[in-house]
Structure formats: structure tokens, C-alpha cells
Amino acid sequence: MTAAVAGQTWCDRCGEAAVAGAHEQCAAARALEPPRYCGRCRRRMKVQVLPVGWSAICVEHGEIRS
């Protein structure tokens, strides 16, 4: 699961609108970071990083996992 934009309304790293500027840095950073914002509604997600993988929960849109 690698987002930082592509088909999302909000950038899952910085939480800004996907159309507001390029998010190349965010996309690059996401290689070594889990998402922090829900790409659909911009809510901050509850993120648990584990030694292997991660999970992120949006109260509205449910859970995504690596």
C-alpha cells in the first residue's frame, strides 16, 4: 500500500489537498513512513507501526495495512 496522493483527495503524508501543489517529497518520504492522514477525508489516522508492517485506522473509513 503506497499512496502519497495517486488517486486520493488528500495527501496521506502532509494532509494537504492532493491538487495543492506537488507532493513528490511526500511520496518519497512515504517509502520510509506509514500514512498519517486518511486520503479520502483528511482525518488524522491512528497508526500503529510494528516491526513488520503497519496499520492505520480512520474512524470514518476503517483500517488499511501495509
Binding site: 517509502a31 513512513e33 507501526v49 503497519w54
Partner: peptide, 13 residues
């Protein structure tokens, strides 16, 4: 430290 860190990710173990 292998695998991920606390809030960021590491390279694969």
C-alpha cells in the same frame, strides 16, 4: 535494529 522503528519504517530485516 531490524525492521521498522516506532513511528517510521526501516529497510526490510
Amino acid at each position: 535494529i531490524v525492521g521498522n522503528y516506532l513511528t517510521t519504517l526501516g529497510r526490510p530485516a
